[in-house]
Amino acid sequence: MAAKSDFLRSVRQAIDKGFRPVPEAPSRPPSRPRPADAIKRADEVRRQLVSRRAEAIATLLKMAPLQAWNVVRVATRVEAADAVAAIAAKLGAKTTVRSDHAVFEDTPVDAALKERGVESHRLTALGRDTRKDLAARAELGVTGVDWMIAETATAVLVSRKGAPRIASLLPPVHVAVVEASQVVPALGDALALVHGQAAAEKWDGFYVNLVSGPSRTGDIEQTIVIGVHGPGQVHLVLIG
């Protein structure tokens, strides 16, 4: 494409024309993508997770309320299903939508909701239009996460089959169900893990959201208002 090569050529000319050595950043060649390095790095992080976990969970429990998460801690996936249903019931929700994250496998989450008179819809089981309509109408969106970052209480959500983008976006309340093994200390760890997985599984692209609390704005008089476009209330159900 002419536009691209012309563009890059004029950038190169500008670089050369304005170049002056920068002592704080000595010249070195540009880096190239190396998927193998990304995979290795992720393995490294994963290996260290176990020994860092207890501390990470302690940090998460401290940070989550600061980021306005409502936290419930439970021991098992079955108890998590109950906790989700309890949140829905307390809200007086009639309709919930949920993702198909692994954390819901073999759990009675749908049954627990039904027991309390709440409809539960697996978004994946629906057609495209119905899926959007239901998510826009639901009072509650329930998802698992890929990782949970302790330092900022951030849920890492990689969008994929069974985990659509709208599940945690359209409903006014989002419940994230997190397993202790998914808690990582820092943003850098989560980035390495996602990147490593993308490289290992040769994803053609990836859409990731870092969610660190409810939707908010300070755009009018710098007064914080919770719940603008995204969920205004977020719950964290931590298993383990």
Partner: peptide, 24 residues
């Protein structure tokens, strides 16, 4: 920018929805 540890959302994308994604 806003004195936040992190904003409520950071969204990352590099293309249209992946072949196995259900929305986007």
């Amino acid at each position: 920018a806003t004195g936040q540890r992190i904003t409520s959302y950071v969204s990352m994308f590099n293309g249209p929805r992946r072949s196995d994604e259900e929305d986007g």
